[in-house]
């Protein structure tokens, strides 16, 4: 819990900024879950809802920008307040990107054919659940200013990456065996890639949460070798 400020309005603005970020996090998480559900069920209406709702995330990001700049301009925050505002600015950008990945997944729903016979489709939801859980938990870490939970989320990214690798291999061999489904499989490969990126972005949020909470930067992670 942070100390109260003499100027009550400052407190209210910081609280409201954090509320906006939390709202963005909730929207991003829901976008991931629903785009994957739409993909698994082949529900075009659900996919369209995800695409339409992304506008709200963009609007919120702009709102965060405005409020953060206003706070910096009017209150000239220092120390933990400054970190809070800067982290909020960056996290808003990242969450907006996560929303874009989910939107991209939703856009691919209509392109995948013969879904019932499409075996690689069964792996995607399990991977997406891991990524969505990372986003959920990193937002909990943000809400609680919990640096330890943030570190734990970062460590979980390796599992999503490993999952991606196995889906990649699986998909390539599937494409070799079933050349007729190559278009659908290629789309699914991009879906898996998007989910993997969502996991990476969740770790980026976690780094910001860690920085805002402790004033220290996490040591740079060694980049994973590309496929």
């Amino acid at each position: 819990m942070m100390a109260e400020h003499t100027v009550k309005a400052f407190d209210a603005e910081i609280t409201s900024l954090r509320g906006l970020i939390a709202e963005m996090g909730g929207l991003a998480e829901m976008a991931i879950n629903e785009s994957i559900q739409a993909l698994a069920k082949g529900s075009l209406s659900m996919a369209e809802a995800v695409i339409a709702r992304d506008a709200r995330l963009d609007k919120l990001e702009a709102e965060v920008d405005r409020l953060a700049i206003r706070i910096i301009a009017l209150r000239a925050p220092v120390a933990d307040d400054l970190r809070e505002v800067i982290a909020a600015l960056k996290i808003a950008g990242i969450l907006e990107r996560i929303g874009d990945y989910a939107k991209n997944i939703a856009k691919r729903v209509s392109r995948i054919e013969e879904r019932t016979r499409f075996e690689p489709l069964t792996l995607i939801p399990a991977m997406a659940e891991m990524a969505a859980d990372m986003v959920h938990d990193v937002m909990t870490a943000y809400a609680a200013r919990d640096a330890a939970l943030a570190v734990e989320v970062i460590e979980r990214d390796a599992k999503v990456d490993a999952f991606y690798d196995s889906i990649f291999r699986n998909m390539v061999s599937f494409m070799v065996e079933n050349p007729s489904t190559i278009t659908s499989a290629a789309h699914l490969l991009f879906v898996a890639r998007n989910i993997e990126r969502i996991g990476d972005h969740a770790t980026n949020v976690a780094e910001q949460v860690y920085f805002a909470a402790t004033a220290e930067y996490l040591a740079d992670r060694t980049e994973r070798p590309m496929n």
Partner: peptide, 19 residues
């Protein structure tokens, strides 16, 4: 979580439907 008191309600209830 104990951190939610004094925070914006969206911190505790992040889901868009809760919002």
């Amino acid at each position: 979580g104990g951190h939610i008191v004094g925070q914006d309600p969206r911190i505790a209830l992040r889901h868009p439907d809760a919002f």
